[in-house]
C-alpha cells in the first residue's frame, strides 16, 4: 500500500508545471459566467430551493453534457502522454511496479482531476447563488449528490479513455474518439429510451436529478443510472487492465 501511495505521488509529480492545471478551472469558470447571467425575472420563483434548481440547471448543461466527458478524455490522454514519447513506458515498466498498480495510479490521478473540476463547479454554483442574493438556507444534500453522482458517472469514461490512451501513442486519436462519442449526447439526451444506457450521457443525467427536470419529462431512475454507470465501468476497467497487463512494450 505504501509503495502504491509513492507511485501515485510519482505520477502527480509528472503533472507539475504542465498546462493540465489550467484546464481544471476552465469549465467551472464558464459555468460561473453562465450562472451570473441567469435572470430570474421572467419566472415567478420565490423559493430558494427552486431558484438553485434553475441556476444549477442552467450552469450544468454545457458543463455536464459536453465539457465534463471531454475533459475526462483529455485528462486520461494527458497522464499517458509523457510515457508515449521516447520510450517512457519501457523505463516505467522496468521499475519494480506491477502494471495493475500503475494502471490504478494513473486512473486515480485522472479521477482526482475530475473531482477537482466538480469541486470548483460546486464553488461556482455557490458564487453565482451569492451573486444573485439567493439564501444559502436550502437542502444541500441533493445538490452534492448530483455533483458527486456526476463525478462517478465520469469514471467509466475515464476507464475507457485510459484504455484507448494506453494503446495509442497518439495524443489526438483518443481525444477524437472521445469527442465523437460525446457529441451525440445532444441527441441521445432527448431520447428516453437510449439516454439511460448511454455512458456518455450519464454525467448529465445524474446532474439533472437535482433540478428535477428532464429533456422529455421522464427522468430516469437512480437505480437505472447506477446500473449503467457500474456496468460500463466494470467492462471498460476490466478491458483496460487486461490489455495493459498483456501489452508488449
Amino acid at each position: 500500500m505504501k509503495s502504491f501511495v509513492r507511485l501515485v505521488a510519482s505520477e502527480r509529480l509528472k503533472l507539475s508545471k504542465s498546462f493540465i492545471w489550467l484546464l481544471v478551472p476552465l469549465s467551472p469558470l464558464l459555468a460561473l459566467a453562465i450562472g451570473l447571467l441567469v435572470s430570474f425575472d421572467s419566472y415567478d420563483i420565490s423559493e430558494s430551493q427552486a431558484k438553485y434548481a434553475m441556476l444549477v440547471s442552467a450552469m450544468s448543461s454545457f458543463h455536464s453534457m459536453l465539457f465534463l466527458p471531454i475533459l475526462t478524455g483529455i485528462f486520461s490522454a494527458f497522464v499517458c502522454r509523457y510515457e508515449h514519447g521516447s520510450g517512457g513506458w519501457k523505463q516505467l515498466l522496468t521499475l519494480p511496479i506491477s502494471r495493475t498498480a500503475l494502471y490504478c495510479a494513473k486512473f486515480i490521478v485522472v479521477a482526482t482531476l475530475i473531482a477537482l473540476t466538480q469541486l470548483l463547479f460546486f464553488g461556482a454554483v455557490c458564487l453565482a447563488g451569492a451573486y444573485h442574493g439567493i439564501s444559502f438556507d436550502i437542502e444541500w444534500a441533493p445538490l452534492l449528490m448530483a455533483i458527486g453522482g456526476s463525478f462517478l458517472a465520469c469514471l467509466p469514461l475515464a476507464a475507457l479513455q485510459l484504455l484507448v490512451s494506453v494503446s495509442w501513442s497518439s495524443f489526438a486519436a483518443p481525444l477524437a474518439i472521445n469527442v465523437m462519442l460525446t457529441i451525440p449526447n445532444i441527441l441521445v439526451l432527448n431520447s428516453a429510451k437510449i439516454a439511460p444506457f448511454y455512458p456518455w450521457a450519464q454525467p448529465m443525467l445524474t446532474m439533472l436529478t437535482f433540478s428535477n427536470d428532464s429533456f422529455n419529462g421522464s427522468a430516469p431512475t437512480i437505480s437505472n443510472m447506477l446500473i449503467t454507470i457500474a456496468g460500463s465501468f466494470f467492462v471498460f476497467w476490466a478491458a483496460g487492465l487486461l490489455y495493459f497487463n498483456r501489452k508488449e512494450v
Binding site: R6, S10, L13, K90, Q91, T94, L95, P96, I97
Partner: peptide, 28 residues
C-alpha cells in the same frame, strides 16, 4: 536492476532532479 532501453526516457518539462525524483518515489 537498472536499465536503459534504446532511447533515454525523460519528462521534458521537468528538471533533471524532478525526473529522477519521479523515479525515486517509486524506488524509495
Amino acid at each position: 536492476i537498472g536499465s536503459l532501453v534504446e532511447y533515454p526516457s525523460y519528462y521534458g518539462h521537468l528538471s533533471a532532479v524532478d525526473n529522477l525524483e519521479a523515479i525515486r518515489r517509486i524506488l524509495d
